[in-house]
């Protein structure tokens, strides 16, 4: 076989290998989606059947909600402050400086607050859940629960998903309030606006569609964070290496899902507005 034929053969082999990789890649995506769907159905089956793990649920709400307050608060404050400072010059150009509180409020409440808070929680809570459950899987703690006749799915997974679903809206409201406070401070760095005037301007411009749809989507954000964190952690393998991989993929996939849900929520909201 001459050199040309050999290189052609190698090219064909390379194409075969890359083709196989592509097929396997697509296949693994479908497998993952199927497993996630089954996991979700298992969640809903376990959610409505007793016994209900209320103590564990409250504990998880404390961990997900209360323990995330400082991080969400600081992020929200900076978000409001920066957005106000950055927006002021543009509004000044058009002589619309007085619109600054309303514009910042609509931006924060409708979009930036929910998405940034959800992303922060995906990083903090989602990775935490993924790593914790994967670690429990690796050290056989989940197996230990199972052999002692306790349903680990109900105890570990259901409580965490419910906690993230209901705590994220609370965190988003908290973040929005702190963000608007940051905005108020930023407005007062270069001007003099009273607290009551600032917030009356905000409430004058806000309506139902600015508040309720974004709040509803945060439940879905929370559900996605909890679901993906639990899914990745609960089904972890490959030992300690799997713990890191679970935490990592929990953050990546839930962040991606947050944007997808946000896009769908915006489309649905625009249909009704």
């Amino acid at each position: 076989m001459d050199k040309t034929n050999i290189s052609k053969q190698e090219e064909t082999d390379d194409e075969d290998v890359s083709g196989n990789k592509l097929v396997k890649g697509i296949e693994s995506i479908f497998v993952e989606i199927t497993l996630l769907t089954r996991f979700t159905l298992q969640f809903f089956r376990n959610l409505f059947t007793p016994p209900y793990e209320l103590n564990e649920l409250l504990k998880q709400c404390y961990i997900v909600g209360y323990k995330s307050l400082p991080l969400v608060g600081v992020t929200g404050f900076i978000m409001g402050l920066v957005l106000t400072i950055q927006s002021r010059p543009t509004l000044e150009t058009f002589g619309a400086e007085s619109w600054l509180p309303a514009m910042v409020a609509v931006s924060i409440i409708r979009e930036i607050g929910p998405v940034i808070t959800a992303l922060i929680c995906a990083g903090k809570v989602g990775s935490g859940i993924g790593a914790e459950l994967a670690s429990m899987r690796v050290t056989e703690q989940i197996d230990a629960m199972e052999v002692s006749g306790i349903n680990p799915f109900k105890y570990i997974v259901v409580t965490r998903i419910v906690a993230t679903t209901f705590m994220l809206p609370v965190l988003v409201i908290f973040s929005d309030v702190i963000g608007l406070t940051g905005s108020f401070l930023a407005v007062n760095i270069q001007g003099d606006v009273s607290f009551s005037l600032f917030f009356s301007q905000i409430f004058a411009k806000l309506d139902f569609m600015d508040v309720i749809p974004p709040l509803i989507k945060t439940f879905f954000f929370g559900f996605a964070i909890g679901l993906i964190g639990c899914f990745k952690g609960y089904n972890s393998d490959k030992g300690t290496e799997g713990v890191g991989a679970s935490a990592n993929s929990a953050v990546v996939i839930s962040s991606l899902l947050i944007f997808i849900i946000d896009m769908m929520a915006v489309q649905i909201t625009s249909l009704f507005s």
Binding site: E140, Q141, D143, A144, V147, G149
Partner: peptide, 17 residues
């Protein structure tokens, strides 16, 4: 119910951290 009658001691003891 049956599992409650069977005790399992794991290699790592599997205590809940």
């Amino acid at each position: 119910e049956l599992r409650k009658k069977v005790g399992f001691l794991f290699q790592s003891a599997a205590l809940y951290d």
